[in-house]
Design a protein around this nucleic acid. Structure first.
Lengths: 201, 201
DNA sequence: GACGATAATGGCACCCGGTGCCAAATGGAA
DNA sequence: TTCCATTTGGCACCGGGTGCCATTATCGTC
């Protein structure tokens, strides 16, 4: 599948006519106007000036058009985990990295909000997100497993990864419902509760 | 959508020709033979001796055919939550009920295993499960909210519900990968870890 | 038995996401 | 200009899912 058009050396073959980024931009406009479900792939392709068949060369499915640079960001998240102090408590590290992973530029907040709204509120996208978040969970599980000296697939790393994702989703929902709050603050609060095992409650 | 054919009083109208239970039985045989993805709704309908259009009168989607009595069981789970002692720690109650919710008869274990295998291993079903588990999360969140004296939609009850579901999913995965272990034991272990905030790790 | 009301069924056309295929288009090098 | 490599787009098709309407089946009443 075509990645973002990086600065590639000139090479043989036809130039690409659009990009994931452009298609996403076009798609978001249509979703804003008509909603995700009422916007078809044909609509997006037409608006972007490409054929429908080409859309699927840029994205695996219609559902993938809202994920932006998520996969790239997972690499960044891995690097953040690699930089945590070795003697830091595991859950403290997870908390810090998850909060940092979700930090966005002030200018990106409206777009980020719309993205999360779609992902969490449109059933098709919410369902699909489970598959996309599988990669996110894998990053967390790998870190936890390394810390514990066990396999990433074993019970505790997986539990940690799933729980961290769950708590993050709860924080996203809260953020969407309360426009005045800071996402990172909500996340930090929720992750702190998780690390306490929701104690005293 | 037609529910299970309970002992209804005689009433006018055509009798139903099949049931959710029967369609599920037929479907599971086909999934066993060909896998979920290669089994079409036409296949299931044909094997059950009904028309394809009728299948969708029994199930909202192909993905729903594997969920058995899940929705009924949520009512049972609510009852179990209602019976927890009022002074029991919240997370202890959640742990106990989640474990109990997942207890199945010895005779049902093979079927339950196949069900979970499908749900967790087939991408389409895994994605769809997010929507189905939303109701499960709601039951947990309602209980937690009542204990905390807050709204079910607020941050902490949602975090608890999401985290509990996440940990349960990790336990299911572990159970599928280790046929010799008891599901309730794995669940209990994982929930205990959650209640400790994955402490000492 | 005929009739009316009711409920279930099934065929059909259609929508839409997604896929394989192949011919056409594009761009650079020789 | 030709050749090679890469991208594009149209098309036919598959399969999940839906609305619609005519048909079928059942029961109670007369």
């Amino acid at each position: 599948m075509p990645e973002k058009p990086a600065e590639l050396p000139v090479r043989p073959g036809r130039r690409r006519s659009t990009s994931q980024h452009e298609l996403e931009r076009v798609a978001f406009e249509l979703f804003e106007r008509d909603g995700f479900d009422a916007t078809t792939v044909d609509d997006i392709a037409r608006a972007a000036g490409i054929g429908r068949r080409t859309f699927f060369r840029y994205f695996d499915s219609k559902n993938d058009v809202v994920w932006g640079a998520f996969t790239d960001q997972l690499g960044r998240m891995r690097e953040q985990f690699a930089r945590r102090p070795a003697d830091e408590p595991l859950m403290a590290a997870v908390r810090a990295v998850v909060v940092e992973f979700n930090r966005v530029d002030e200018a990106e907040v409206p777009r980020h909000r719309r993205r999360l709204e779609l992902i969490l509120r449109v059933p098709a996208l919410q369902a699909h997100s489970t598959l996309r978040y599988g990669d996110w969970r894998a990053v967390v599980a790998e870190f936890a497993a390394a810390r514990l000296g066990v396999e990433p697939a074993s019970l505790v790393p997986q539990s940690i990864a799933y729980a961290a994702l769950g708590v993050a989703l709860a924080a996203y929902e809260h953020w969407l419902a309360h426009p005045g709050v800071e996402l990172c603050d909500v996340l930090d609060t929720a992750m702190a509760e998780l690390a306490r095992g929701f104690g005293d409650v």
